[in-house]
Design a binder for these strands. Structure first.
Lengths: 198, 198
DNA sequence: TCCAAATCTAGAACGTGTTTCAATATCATA
DNA sequence: TATGATATTGAAACACGTTCTAGATTTGGA
């Protein structure tokens, strides 16, 4: 038994199963969105029994929100190191939002699946949701303050970041449900950021 | 055939059926929330066949979003006439939000059902969603400007109203999914309004 | 190495949103 | 009023999330 490949608990075989499940989830979501992530299909593709899938993730929502967390981790790792370009908080925040929105547009089905799961999550998924919220907050706060650390994040910064996150979620909701366009998302964010960071 | 009881199309019997369906929907939602609004139960309570229910409303989401629109109409009628108290836009907006949030808290199950439907609605419900959005926008714009009509709603007013609506939806989402408290909703709104109307 | 406990598998089964269909009822009009 | 079109009914059937069960298989400790 080699060890320490991950911090996830369980035996090697279990970590492997978990990875296969999340990979299958992302692949199915990327192809067909929320509806295509069917529990029987995930189990089949991941080569586990349906009961096992439910042992690892107690519901489709848990499964998708966990997958969202993993995606967020990867995106954050990519962006954390780099300095955010832009001379003002406004410019930097819009840059981060722009880059992210562009990335989401490239995998619209996946975005739809993960966003819907996030919206539908109830109290039993509070931990995972909180996790995702923290990562988003960290990303935006980092953008407001810049990497040069000229100032500490103030309480006001945090409040602004929360409002931006809310507007973003609403905009994403409109987009993934097909009621608005991706350009509308950018437009909404631009207006909100202009109002908040002035 | 007496006429002109409503602007809704169809025969008297059809308008009656439609009303019974929406009444049953609201009653079930008020008692047990989103999950309790089961299509078979709605059909039974409204004394129509399941197929008839689907002829009137093509999905559970359409049904609930239409019910939401009806509730909004009633709330709007109540508030439209009255002058919104408060000397500043901030005070007036917070008053409207406070009154509405209090009302929603009194029927948490109903709020949960209608909010969830709103969040889940896809493009096929765009018209109904747009309708609800317009009503909310009108209410908030009215509050910002006051009844005394000292000024026209500016483009900025409209942008602010949209952002407030977004924050409100996010806050409601957290509350109806049991992840945050009703007090958190008020707090979120207060912070957002303070940031936007300064 | 052997055994008990934990885990995994295959598959059936249940609940609820949605679809479908044949039979019946209602309506609008000639 | 008769008749064809339209609406309603009742019931069955399907899809997918979820639960449950009985029998392998794996695992970890004596």
């Amino acid at each position: 038994m080699t060890s320490a490949t991950e911090t996830t608990p369980g035996s090697n075989a279990q970590r492997e199963r978990r990875r296969r499940i999340l990979d299958a989830t992302i692949a199915l979501a990327d192809e067909g969105g929320f509806d295509a992530v069917q529990m029987r299909a995930v189990a089949d593709d991941a080569d586990v029994a349906l009961g096992t899938l439910y042992r690892y993730f107690p519901s489709k929502i848990h499964l998708l929100v966990t997958a969202l967390g993993r995606q967020f981790d990867r995106a954050e790792q990519q962006s954390r190191s780099r300095q955010v370009p832009g001379d003002t908080p406004h410019e930097r925040v819009m840059h981060v939002l722009g880059v992210t929105t562009t990335a989401l547009q490239k995998q619209p089905k996946l975005t739809e699946a993960l966003t819907r799961a996030f919206m539908f999550a109830d109290a039993s998924v509070a931990d995972e949701i909180h996790d995702v919220g923290m990562k988003l907050t960290a990303m935006l706060t980092h953008a407001i303050d810049g990497t040069d650390q000229t100032r500490e994040p103030t309480e006001e910064d945090e409040a602004i970041v929360r409002v931006i996150g809310d507007v973003w979620l609403s905009a994403l909701m409109g987009w993934v449900t097909g009621r608005t366009s991706a350009a509308d998302v950018t437009r909404s964010m631009d207006v909100a950021v202009r109002l908040l960071l002035r």
